[in-house]
Write a protein that binds this DNA or RNA. Sequence first.
DNA 1: TCAAAAGTGTTTCCCTTACACCCATGA
DNA 2: TCATGGGTGTAAGGGAAACACTTTTGA
Lengths: 243, 243
Amino acid sequence: MSNKFRNQEANAHGHGYLPGLAIDAVIFGFHDNQLKVLLLTYKNTGLFALPGGFVHDTEDVNEAARRVLFDRTGLTNIFLDQFYVFGDKSRHDTAPLKAIMAVRGVTPPDDHWLLKRFVSVGYYALVDFTKAIPTPDSISDSCDWFGLDNLPELMQDHNLIIKKALETLQANLDQKLIGFNLLTDDFTMGDLQSLYETILNKKLIRAAFQRKILGLGILERTAKKWTGGAHKAPYLYRFISEK
Amino acid sequence: MSNKFRNQEANAHGHGYLPGLAIDAVIFGFHDNQLKVLLLTYKNTGLFALPGGFVHDTEDVNEAARRVLFDRTGLTNIFLDQFYVFGDKSRHDTAPLKAIMAVRGVTPPDDHWLLKRFVSVGYYALVDFTKAIPTPDSISDSCDWFGLDNLPELMQDHNLIIKKALETLQANLDQKLIGFNLLTDDFTMGDLQSLYETILNKKLIRAAFQRKILGLGILERTAKKWTGGAHKAPYLYRFISEK
DNA sequence: TCAAAAGTGTTTCCCTTACACCCATGA
DNA sequence: TCATGGGTGTAAGGGAAACACTTTTGA
């Protein structure tokens, strides 16, 4: 949820949007050897939420997800995938929405469309932490990275959504080779291994990892070297996009 | 789509249902060494469609999918999983729905809820062909198995939905060991291999397959033997449910 | 000179492949 | 007895794991 309220408060019937359908985006980043997700905070409510939005009746659902991702990060051409539909009736909880609106001095009518039951399509995205520009929406007062290890209590079932997104990421990491989307253009083998270890939450064997990754034939060595530490300088690698 | 119209024609506003949200179920069966899916046919329209339905406002989306599966097959406790949300705006096509209604002598008003844009959650199910009892809904005149190799042209994007369901099945076959759901309680190793070969659409090596499957430790030999052919009688195996 | 990180070579182990052989059965 | 399908034994091959050795760098 987020960006869900720009102009919507005055639009009590949700004209122009698909009714009862929301998008929630788990946007992963990697920094300081930690997996992070983008969260919105709502002023004076102590509420935290995943970035999200609704679907215009003129766009595809997947397009809406890309729009949400762009609005919160300024990024396009990013790995973004559906992973689950959250449709339990127990999700229906009007309290947080009312609280957010109340702080803004709005008391929605009981039949306001945002207070109805919503089904949410969960998306997860992998972004380059250094390139994303976290941007709050019109009714949240900040948009920030939070470490996966110390997430706050989130609105509704958003903690569950993140959990399921992480499981999907772990399961697809090797299969779809999506991990690279979390790194900068050039990176060392150590960076990549550290990323894998963080996502999978287990140590990997250095020599085996190096051979396995290089064996995929999807990295090129960019001749350049890194400098700084009291040790041998590692090579920088770059992901080879489709030839 | 199916079962979507029981009582709904008279309910032009879709009261009691989540608006704009549908469920489509790709129900796989296995018979005569062929993968089959359950389809509904609509009288006098030449239209074919996947079984489907809508979500009551008193039930979870996953519950609604189970209900659809039960209504069309009489089965419960069946493998059933979400695999994708079909939400492109190009799906919106009122022609087939109008045709179906027209045959029944109904002309829906232009703002009838069924003529609005729908987003559909795709589910796929794996059922024992011998146990399912295909049952048409109130407005289709038959519900039958169709071989995947000779599917008719289906309503809307239902051919695409089946294609994507099959890809999901292929990708998850080994990982989640879901293939067993398509067989009878007791089966020979040949049956199982034939099933795998059909789903994956490639030949497997007999000896390797047998060792691989038995190596999983999830089958028990039921001592009994099969009879009939001019060759050694194969053992029957049974899937060991959680111990 | 030393510690630490990086790259690579070597050996072992295991799973898959490939091939073969034996068994059971009915025509 | 013969063809056919079913179960299993054995050896080869490929990749991961485990370990070690070398290289590079700054303190």
